[in-house]
Write a protein that binds this DNA or RNA. Sequence first.
DNA 1: CGTTAATTTGACGGGAATCAAGGGGAGTGG
DNA 2: CCACTCCCCTTGATTCCCGTCAAATTAACG
Lengths: 239, 239
Amino acid sequence: MFVQSAATIRKNSRPPGVDSTVSDTLLIAGCPQLVGSRMTYAQDEEIYGDGEEAEFVYKVVAGAVRTYKLLSDGRRQIGAFHLPGDIFGFESNSTHRLSAEAISDTTVLVFSRRALECLATHSIEIARALWALAARSLDHAEDHMLLLGRKTAAERVAAFLLEMDERMQSTGAIRLPMTRRDIGDYLGLTLETVSRALSHLKAEGTLELPTARQITVQRRSKLRTLGSEDAFPRALSCC
Amino acid sequence: MFVQSAATIRKNSRPPGVDSTVSDTLLIAGCPQLVGSRMTYAQDEEIYGDGEEAEFVYKVVAGAVRTYKLLSDGRRQIGAFHLPGDIFGFESNSTHRLSAEAISDTTVLVFSRRALECLATHSIEIARALWALAARSLDHAEDHMLLLGRKTAAERVAAFLLEMDERMQSTGAIRLPMTRRDIGDYLGLTLETVSRALSHLKAEGTLELPTARQITVQRRSKLRTLGSEDAFPRALSCC
DNA sequence: CGTTAATTTGACGGGAATCAAGGGGAGTGG
DNA sequence: CCACTCCCCTTGATTCCCGTCAAATTAACG
């Protein structure tokens, strides 16, 4: 598995040496010692596989990534979409717990996990930033469990649109990189159900669909009442 | 909210002062500086609420705890059950993202989050242990998303039984602290569906139900084929 | 022993999955 | 520029798993 990771890393760099440049000194956690190697992946190309050695950490520069788990019969659960600026693939264990694929042609910065951990050993701020990173993933997972376990199809789709709108800072004009199947596998639905929910929202006038991948939100309030019920803090209602 | 947390801490200790003893020097992450205060909660008592200040971290000594999120109409998703030995309530943010309640009468050790973080600042090992803690929660959440999004009722119940059997090291003789409703809210099902699934497994001879809360596994292999499909590593099938 | 909550079981209905065509857009090649 | 193709998406028809509603049974507890 170690070998496979190493192969993956080299596969897509046109010259055999990775084009690591100081120019894209985009740093994880604002730490100047760590410069990532730029890598590109074609649409649907695997970035890493479930069970592989977690040798690298990734930061999306352009494109989009899905991380997912599979059952043996092909059922898939996408745990998260990773958009430009997002860091993914950072594990506490030595191996990846999900697989990662490029949704569209994607550019990432690749960092050595070992180097990161080493830095964290010397800097409390880095250690804390990494731990905050894991915690953010956990927060998202907890919200998503509520969605998967307890929300209706309409609520899931509305929540998805709100999430994407916010994360892409596309104020109302969402440009989706993923297919309906991807969305379904993220929301625990079939692609048909996702499509129907979108059509319904369109018919209601809540949104417009200039193209299938382009969604403009007309009435955000309507989406909010459906999807954005992010767990009502008990504290607010009782004190 | 700060006030509420402080009140909670004092509420259940029969003498006004908490009985913090050196005797139960059960330490988080094996660190002798930190001694927790022993606290008890009655069945169904709230330990903390969603949105409250995350002032304390908890370790279960006896009993069981559920952490969950609610929708405004009462739908509930239990994110995890916490059994003796488990640590919960540790957040990266300043506030709790879920609520916590005692499932049965429960004893916990309470630690100051601030003290823990302070320790982590001075000790890399502690910092790493805390981050491993968060990562374990994340792993569980990722597995659980697959269950909630993609598994059938029978598969969910089988997976639940296997999880409990393993975590309680009750080799085949599971003593459940939680109700069918709790199980349902954990698995994204109704209590009736959980009950039916259990009855079905009983009729098959896969398990016995001496009482509703006591389950003895007769054929673990049967449960495994149903539930324990914990995401097939792509790596195993392709290299 | 009575009261209440938890669980089981049955009957039924509905929401989403499945099965199945039918469009529509983007890219390709003529 | 247009025809062709492929894939994605939409929409319809039908199925079915699980949720809902309801009642009976069992367990828990004072």
